[in-house]
Write a protein that binds this DNA or RNA. Structure first.
Lengths: 236, 236
DNA sequence: CTGATTAACTTGTTGTAACATGTAAACAAG
DNA sequence: CTTGTTTACATGTTACAACAAGTTAATCAG
């Protein structure tokens, strides 16, 4: 156990252990975690402590509790009922992806900042073109922290969406934040997407946080407007 | 005490009392509330209960605690954070609006279709420029059905956002649907917004439904990217 | 008067204990 | 086979107690 962990409050140490259980796949989304009484035996702490750990993870959206039933690992944070905003993000039919370039490097300082990494850390970088029905619809720059990248580097070349691949490797997310803007296609982007330079693109910057709050993905994607459909619905 | 309150858990009853203390001005924002020990005496409950009430109010953003110092009522009633699917849409400071044109007509067939109106119905049309800090940030075309338009036609010239005006006339909405895309500024739009033609704009098409499901507003707004901030958050 | 120390607060952490209440599977009765 | 009951087990609520640790203001030494 590391030094920082030793002086952390017990309930935070246990909270971290629980998060690790999920990250390592011992506790899987949708499944029940051990009951409070078992956890009391397992970690040899009081119920107060266990409950405080669980309470925070519920608050973080990682676990869900219901009186009378075992506490469960949340399936996905998205399928909620009664949320004020629903985001649809559908495109074409036959979806695929093509990797233009991929490397592992220690520069890319801006992306590393977004991923909350140190200067010395390495990142996986993928330059991808997302295709729908064999036509390019988006140019994407995808950055992954080293531990995540090593797990999914093979999938990133095949999967249109990397989230299923992440889930299969027990890398689960808690939160996705997207910033939407617009930009003009550069010569480079226009060539890739088959457009005229200057054409308006929907420009989406996305940061995904893992269940421990640490970023697991940063990406910048530029979509062709005609192949894009971003609908936000607010209300009941 | 009301019947519903009697069967509520103690900590929720006390939480409600605390909220009332704030609403009635007994506890003022920025000021300290009584210490836990005082509250224990005052309400004659255990510290567990008091702390659970306080914890929830902290989570709700109503109170703020700091070890060693008295718990305080939050100065700025913290915005709802962590709500899944929340859309933030903030821009500059000094917001205003300028109306370029307004009329009441029976054409504009596309907009009338979106508003689910018949061909013979009339619509109010406003061409507006939204300004932030005296600089134009968006060009907006706003369409209102005749009954709605008559109520707010004066406000549409002054209000940056027409929803408060609608609410004042008891026109409430149930649902907002926005489609986000990007487009290149036309010569006309570029002139208005002070840009070069072709510049990428964030293009938002919005339909608002009233509480009876009938559309009350259709608009198309094109924002300057630099003055725009559209953040979507999914998850907790 | 200044500056370090202390005393008297505050909230934070953790344990123990008892009872309340919701859930679902096992079981019994029709 | 369906329905109602029991029962074991889950989380929720509440109380009491002790100590940890941060903050602030009074106190005291210089």
């Amino acid at each position: 156990m590391s030094d920082e962990q030793r002086k952390l409050p017990l309930y935070l140490q246990i909270k971290n252990k629980m998060v690790n259980n999920i990250k390592e796949g011992a506790w899987k989304p949708g499944e029940a975690i051990p009951s409070e009484n078992r956890l009391i035996e397992q970690y040899n702490v009081s119920r107060t402590t266990i409950r405080q750990s669980i309470r925070e993870l519920v608050q973080d959206g990682v676990l869900e509790t219901r009186r009378g039933t075992p506490t469960r690992v949340r399936q996905t944070p998205k399928e909620e009922e009664g949320n004020p905003g629903v985001v649809h993000h559908e495109l074409g039919e036959e979806l695929s992806v093509q990797v233009l370039r991929s490397d592992q490097c220690a520069d890319r300082y801006y992306a590393k900042g977004e991923l909350m990494l140190d200067d010395i850390d390495e990142v996986f970088f993928f330059e991808r073109v997302r295709m729908a029905d064999a036509r390019p619809i988006a140019y994407q720059q995808l950055f992954l922290p080293k531990p995540v990248g090593e797990k999914v580097k093979d999938d990133a070349a095949k999967m249109f969406d990397i989230f299923p691949a992440l889930g299969m490797h027990d890398v689960h997310y808690k939160n996705i934040k997207e910033t939407v803007s617009a930009s003009n296609a550069t010569q480079y982007e226009a060539d890739i997407l088959g457009l005229i330079p200057g054409e308006a693109l929907v420009d989406i910057e996305r940061t995904t946080l893992g269940i421990d709050g640490i970023p697991i993905e940063y990406s910048r994607t530029k979509y062709i407007t005609s192949a894009f459909n971003y609908r936000i619905e607010i209300g009941r």
